[in-house]
């Protein structure tokens, strides 16, 4: 299957924005749990797993799910043990991780970086 380098970064960015909106702006919306759960269970992990370049969609999904659980729980746990339990703070950190990963992916897969990598490999 053809890999679309822009697809997942775009999904992650849109999911992060949507989660931010339903959590902080339009809070009284029925689809809020679905958007938030989608973001928490998929996006932080997928933002990192895409760097592995595994080329197998099923495998990427499984690792993204497991890694998302791990990142969510460990970030929340660190704040809890530090005496700074804050669900919104945790969400903010997860949004940062997801956005950072997605932007880095876009940077790595941009036409300019592709040309640079091609030049390096040609040399």
């Amino acid at each position: 299957m053809k890999r679309l380098p822009w697809l997942w970064p775009a999904i992650i960015v849109l999911s992060t924005v949507a989660t931010c909106l339903v959590t902080f702006v339009i809070t009284d919306i029925a689809v809020r749990p679905f958007i938030v759960l989608w973001f928490l269970f998929v996006c932080p992990g997928m933002a990192l797993v895409r760097f592995f370049r595994l080329e197998e969609l099923v495998v990427e999904w499984i690792l993204a799910l497991a890694l998302s659980f791990a990142i969510d729980a460990i970030v929340a746990g660190i704040l809890l043990y530090a005496g700074r339990w804050s669900p919104t703070g945790t969400l903010g950190i997860l949004m940062g991780i997801s956005l950072g990963g997605a932007i880095l992916q876009i940077g790595l897969d941009s036409p300019i970086s592709l040309i640079r990598r091609t030049r390096v490999s040609t040399k």
């Binding site: 749990p33 659980f69 929340a76 746990g77 669900p87 945790t90």
Partner: peptide, 17 residues
């Protein structure tokens, strides 16, 4: 060993259940 419960509490709070 609270990892699962920390995650559950975080998810419940953030989904506003």
């Amino acid at each position: 060993w609270p990892g699962f419960f920390v995650l559950s509490a975080f998810v419940t709070r953030i989904t506003e259940y």
